[in-house]
Design a protein around this nucleic acid. Structure first.
Lengths: 149, 149
DNA sequence: CTTGACCTTCCAACAATGGGAAGCTTTACG
DNA sequence: CGTAAAGCTTCCCATTGTTGGAAGGTCAAG
């Protein structure tokens, strides 16, 4: 099976297959006499595993562990669970960060009348001086950059 | 004010200040005779704006629009609102994607006994054949890669 | 035997950030 | 004043995962 077929069968693009081979995530694929990659069912099986794990957000780095565990018939499921749990924790913190942003932004958007006038609490908030850093109050003009021109 | 002080005052690292200047997000900072950057209050004000917007997850690309709107005293707040709303939509889709991953993964983790035995539904699921792609059932052995060795 | 679709490798780019080298300037201290 | 430390400059490299393209070899169909 050549790389195009393997890509279609696994859901991993040809480019990425070459990349994974390059960084050693998958073993070197055997070649035909002319140098074309020749994928076995097992190769495709591995690629499908990678495709699914990547779609769950596992990093390539984590894939090394996951693949090693998968291939280790003496693994402890607790090790697998630990990798997965660590990833869930990462996801949780990313989600929380995005939700915090979203909440702040939504609050601002809800207070912006959103019409033809230039007044806007969104810019006002972003431009607010002395919020969490050195304050520099005292009224020097800031040219076109004041939040309420 | 030199770059170190500007960085401290704005919350943007010196590295990133140079980068923003380089890509034209901020105007070229004036220099002293010896070539050191010499930041005005206005420069720092811009940097603080950027710092806040970046912390809300706006991309550098979006910053161009946001800064342009900020500087345009004839802007319509609806334009600002549109940029912010578009960003909220992006955040929503990212959050949803991460939550979907999290849910799937949590389900798997909750079904993994997580002990010394190798059996693991997490690997089992990732290794499952013919789930959303070409199926290739029929029982060829896949060596060490079967989900239940 | 030509054409087009495929494959190969290598190189570059993206976004945003950090690290570091080589070299110059400013500051602080004795 | 002299020297050393700290801070600045530019330039290049690495990161993560993925895509795009160029130059060239190969395969299958007509």
């Amino acid at each position: 099976m050549n790389i195009g077929q393997a890509a279609k069968a696994s859901g991993v693009s040809g480019k990425m297959i070459r990349y994974y081979e390059d960084v050693g995530l998958i073993p070197r694929i055997s070649r035909t006499d002319s140098g074309y990659r020749d994928f076995s069912e097992k190769d495709v099986h591995i690629l499908r595993f990678i495709s699914r794990a990547r779609s769950l957000g596992f990093s390539v780095e984590q894939m090394y562990s996951l693949l090693a565990l998968w291939q280790d018939r003496h693994r402890a499921s607790s090790d697998v669970k630990a990798v997965a749990q660590a990833h869930i924790d990462e996801l949780d913190s990313k989600i929380k960060k995005l939700q915090d942003m979203r909440e702040t932004l939504l609050h601002l958007v809800n207070h912006c009348h959103g019409d033809h006038r230039p007044d806007c609490p969104i810019l006002g908030d972003l431009a607010a001086e002395g919020q969490e850093l050195e304050e520099q109050r005292g009224g020097k003009s800031l040219g076109d950059f004041s939040d309420k021109p």
